[in-house]
């Protein structure tokens, strides 16, 4: 059973449909116990950094999510804003407090590119990763600029390179939307579900 954390601020219908197509059962949860014990947990995210961070705190889920990801052996997938929330802060909302698992800050794309980045772009794993290089659908204005220590990473070019995905243990975080990235995206989800440990 895949537990999808329902912060109420993300549009998660596409994600549910993708799991349905892959034959996986899922459930929406706001329970710290589910987050602690489930075989698979997804932290989705669309929308604003501050709203999502506040929702996590209001639901009392901060500690459960941090503990799960630091445990490393539990399969956790963080998508789009979900990946950004792993960091300490974001230029999008200076006062909001991220999960702080990664001691870095999220920044806005620089001048010279259209913002938001909206569309398909190439994802290139820099280290041995849970998936092969491919093309993914992105919808983001903010990004992680460099790979965090202790994590594997993939990079993408958009006005210079940025980090489009990171992984550690059985945690996989994607700035792109695997659920909207065609057959390649479905293969990323399958790899995560089936549990390749990195």
């Amino acid at each position: 059973m895949i537990q999808i954390i329902n912060t109420g601020v993300a549009n998660i219908r596409s994600l549910q449909a993708a799991f349905d197509r892959l034959g996986c059962t899922w459930n929406l949860t706001v329970s710290p116990e589910d987050i602690a014990t489930a075989s698979h947990v997804v932290l989705p995210g669309v929308g604003a950094f501050a709203a999502a961070a506040e929702a996590i705190d209001q639901l009392g889920l901060r500690t459960a999510i941090i503990d799960r990801i630091n445990h490393r052996e539990s399969a956790t997938l963080c998508i789009c804003l979900g990946m950004q929330l792993l960091c300490e802060s974001s230029e999008e909302s200076q006062s909001a407090k991220g999960l702080g698992i990664i001691p870095m800050a999220i920044t806005r794309f620089g001048d010279g590119v259209k913002i938001p980045q909206l569309g398909w772009n190439e994802v290139r794993p820099l280290d041995n990763g849970p998936y092969d290089a491919g093309e993914a659908y992105f919808a983001n204005s903010y990004r992680l600029e460099t790979a965090p220590d202790g994590w594997g990473a993939a990079e993408t070019d958009y006005g210079g390179t940025f980090i489009s995905s990171i992984w550690r243990g059985r945690t996989l975080a994607c700035q792109f939307h695997p659920e909207l990235s065609g057959t390649w995206g479905e293969s990323v989800l399958t790899q995560w579900i089936e549990g390749i440990t990195c």
Binding site: S14, A17, D20, R21, H177, E179, L180, G182, T183, E186
Partner: peptide, 28 residues
């Protein structure tokens, strides 16, 4: 349910509630 690429829906949207209904139904 069938689509693994982004879906945009338009036409006759008059309010934020309309938009919310379309997103809940599965529009991206």
């Amino acid at each position: 349910q069938r689509l693994s690429i982004p879906l945009t829906v338009g036409g006759g949207i008059g309010s934020i509630e309309d938009a919310g209904r379309l997103l809940n139904a599965g529009a991206d």
